[in-house]
Design a protein around this nucleic acid. Structure first.
Length: 167
DNA sequence: GCCAACGTTGGC
DNA sequence: GCCAACGTTGGC
């Protein structure tokens, strides 16, 4: 009898999450080990969080508005999309009065820290790498805070950052 | 449904 | 600090 094993698993997908170190930096994430990635208030990013990002996917953590701007760490998804409760908390910066708890507008995922990118792989280094010219991150005017990374880009980035595939 | 005005993001 | 690019809002 066929077992679940014979089903082809969904291939791992890869993502890049932006954060501003002033509000939630990688250091804090690494200390805590795991976090819920809340506060995304953009529909395109929301759709990825809700529909596309799955457990065990790989995540690059990127610092924007930082010196230097860089990919600073690697994480993996440990819980797929579920309602972002910070939208329901009036005192929270990310409160959204229009998000109804019975039909939430905003979603988040949980990620676990895999390791720091040491040293960080800077935006400049990424721009200098021909294999990364198509990265969403590097496109003119790109503002998406949760964005897809191809498997090829992921491998190039880990190689440039002297990281191993660690899981 | 159009689109001008506005607020935000985020690199530079 | 500047400002281009973008997403959202709201009048019509």
């Amino acid at each position: 009898m066929a077992t679940a094993k014979s089903k082809s698993a969904r291939p791992r997908h890869y993502w890049l999450f932006k954060s501003e170190p002033e509000s939630f930096g990688f250091a804090q994430f690494a200390r805590e080990g795991r976090t819920f990635w809340s506060g995304v208030r953009n529909y395109q990013a929301r759709n990825l969080l809700r529909d596309a990002i799955a457990v065990d996917d790989g995540v690059l953590v990127y610092h924007s508005n930082a010196e230097p701007m860089a990919i600073v760490g690697i994480a993996k998804v440990v819980k797929s999309g579920y309602p972002d409760h910070t939208a329901f908390e009036p005192k929270c910066d990310y409160y959204d009065a229009d998000s109804d708890p019975s039909d939430p507008t905003w979603f988040m995922v949980d990620i676990e820290c895999v390791g720091a990118m040491l040293p960080p792989l800077t935006r400049e280094q990424c721009k200098a790498e021909p294999a990364l010219v198509d990265m969403v991150l590097l496109q003119r005017g790109s503002r998406l805070s949760v964005q897809p990374v191809t498997a090829e880009q992921w491998l190039v980035i880990l190689r440039l950052g002297k990281q191993k595939e660690t899981w």
